[in-house]
Design a protein around this nucleic acid. Structure first.
Lengths: 167, 167
DNA sequence: TTGTGTGCAAAAGCTTTGCATGTTG
DNA sequence: CAACATGCAAAGCTTTTGCACACAA
């Protein structure tokens, strides 16, 4: 993504958030917009804590409580997605202007790769009908070992074999 | 599942766990087998804490630390699955003798329903090949509103409408 | 007998809450 | 100016850790 696209997105999401707050009779505070902007300036996935630290580093005087509160609002109005990739710490990512996607996570190095597959949409609507659920969203995570870590594991295994033979 | 099936399963999983512990040079302690048995006597999903409380209620003198430790071992040898359904508390379920399945969670009442779809296996192997990941497992959760809660929401909405007209 | 596993309690880490203060509508 | 949102710190919850003791191999 280039800087122009980013700036455009920021304008758009601010308008969306503003409309959402108005509709819900919530206040348009400086902090809420600072947090939104900060999220849309960043890429990839982040944790509440790292977002907080980032804001502090930039001399914005916000508290953790406000960060968590605002993240909830942004998730509610669909500008941010919240994930639990198996850790106890939630991870977030901006979602406006992005194609719906899912994640593959390397269990060794924790790298996250995104992917798309249209079949998931089909499963979604079919299962919704079948089980009489009005499905709002989903989370699909694949866990495995990425190419790099596969190599690392092979090297480790080879080392172990050598050790065994030399003792 | 009837009681005979359950008992058979318990014997089988104990053997599997026993073999796993031997292979990994870990000890076959009483606690580890008590916990395994307790899990396979239960149905559905459970949290570490509720398993712990259940064991205490039955006068088994186990500690939380041992419960967590044993759950990790059981996840590692694939006798138990660990889930993060969006809460900060992990949920577990026994997995031996069960068909692989995924979950639909009601965001209102938190009810969990299981479903199967073969397409997810296809996505899994295709994406593994494509991105050069050796995929070990996955987690697919759909979130939405179940039939009951849809009705409840309609009733709520109707009430609100009446309130509005009478004021 | 030896050292791994356990129980207990305390610590750690993420998230939420309570309260006084500040700011929006 | 009234109510809601914020900052701060403390509390709450789940999970992990450290240490002395117990028990499987």
């Amino acid at each position: 993504m280039n800087n122009n696209q980013r700036k455009e997105h920021i304008e758009e999401v601010k308008n969306i958030f503003s409309a959402y707050l108005e509709q819900k009779d919530l206040r348009r505070t400086t902090e809420r917009f600072i947090i939104l902007e900060e999220i849309y300036l960043r890429d990839d996935h982040f944790e509440a804590e790292s977002l907080y630290e980032h804001l502090i580093k930039r001399k914005y005087n916000v508290s953790r409580a406000t960060v968590y509160n605002t993240l909830d609002l942004l998730v509610a109005c669909d500008l941010v997605k919240k994930h639990q990739f198996g850790k106890n710490q939630a991870q977030y990512e901006k979602s406006y202007g992005y194609k719906q996607h899912d994640h593959i996570i390397c269990v060794d190095c924790k790298k996250v790769v995104e992917f798309c597959d249209p079949r998931i949409q089909q499963i979604k609507s079919m299962m919704g009908d079948l089980l009489n659920f009005k499905i709002t969203h989903h989370s699909l995570n694949m866990y495995g070992i990425c190419g790099n870590c596969q190599k690392k594991r092979e090297v480790e295994a080879a080392k172990k074999e050598v050790d065994k033979q030399t003792t």
